[in-house]
């Protein structure tokens, strides 16, 4: 039994099993990177090269023109303004929505964790179930409500919508975060005479930097990537970038400019992708934290 096992495993570095592991991981990585590669390559090729060539081929003649076109002169129907308008619209939607939903989420989480308000638990429970309600159920009534408030098809309207749909996860995120803060800290602040908002603003909020970063990453990428809510609620003047992108590409008039389409797609993905690349582990933390529902 033993002569065989002796000296069995000295060099674990490069046995067949390890080669297999790397082969699997590298081919998986190639599959995941393929669309990104195609996007980049296609976006810098002239149209005739695309029409004749292989999508995997590197560009023969390099051009940045599709990027310019995508940004400032691509057509959606009759308008030929590019998707830059969408970029600014998305920014105008994302910034206030993120700030507001984080603020409300933090306030909710704080009130739920430290102040035992009656009925708050039940509200929170319903809110958590609300996270699972398909948006389609809520869309029509929300349209009616916003119309009655004269907020339909307006910037404040779409911001309010994002605050509503972001509330479950934001509240959960902050509630769980505050639940991990020792109750004693809160009690000490109460004994020092702190009131509801003073403790929130001067003690809890400054302690919440990590979770605020996580929440901001989640909200910015989530709202930036939203399509359906922007489509329904933003109105023609405020269409976010994703909606404009889809309009540019699935426009039925004229020739399809694939290079412009790919450039537009990259441009639209640039903001969430850079956030992802810069934030790295924070992004994953957001997924993990937001995923622990219930």
């Amino acid at each position: 039994m033993n002569a065989t096992v002796t000296r069995a495993r000295r060099n674990t570095r490069l046995d067949p099993a390890r080669i297999g592991i790397y082969a699997f991981l590298v081919s998986a990585a190639a599959f995941f990177l393929l669309p990104l590669y195609i996007m980049l390559v296609t976006s810098v090729k002239p149209m005739d090269e695309i029409r004749l060539g292989n999508i995997f081929a590197l560009p023969l003649s390099f051009t940045m023109e599709p990027w310019q076109t995508a940004w400032s002169s691509a057509c959606t129907g009759v308008d030929c303004e590019g998707i830059r308008g969408g970029f600014w619209n998305s920014l105008a939607i994302v910034a206030p929505s993120t700030v507001l939903s984080i603020l409300i989420g933090a306030l909710n989480g704080y009130a739920l964790s430290f102040w035992r308000a009656r009925g708050a638990g039940l509200l929170f429970g319903i809110l958590m179930m609300g996270a699972f309600i398909p948006v389609q159920v809520m869309i029509y009534p929300l349209v009616q409500i916003l119309a009655a408030l004269h907020l339909f098809s307006s910037l404040p309207g779409i911001i309010l919508i994002h605050v509503i749909f972001g509330m479950p996860v934001m509240t959960l995120l902050f509630r769980n975060y505050y639940a991990s803060i020792p109750e004693e800290l809160f009690k000490a602040a109460r004994i020092d005479g702190g009131g509801f908002f003073r403790i929130f603003l001067q003690l809890m909020l400054p302690m919440s930097t990590p979770i605020i970063i996580v929440a901001a990453i989640m909200q910015v990428t989530g709202i930036w990537n939203d399509y359906i809510l922007g489509l329904v609620f933003a109105g023609r003047e405020n269409l976010p970038m994703t909606v404009q992108l889809n309009n540019v590409i699935n426009t039925t008039t004229g020739v399809r400019l694939y290079n412009v389409n790919m450039a537009a797609t990259i441009l639209t993905s640039l903001v969430p992708l850079s956030i992802y690349l810069v934030s790295g582990r924070w992004f994953v933390r957001g997924i993990a934290a937001g995923a622990v529902k219930g």
Binding site: F32, I249, M262, Y276
Partner: peptide, 30 residues
Amino acid sequence: LRTVFLYPYAMSFVATGLVWQWLLNPGNGI
């Protein structure tokens, strides 16, 4: 590797859908 496997999730479904439409398009794609 982790960054590579997760980056698609950071993009919008619209954007990735459009890329795949392009990839799968029999006339020009794969």
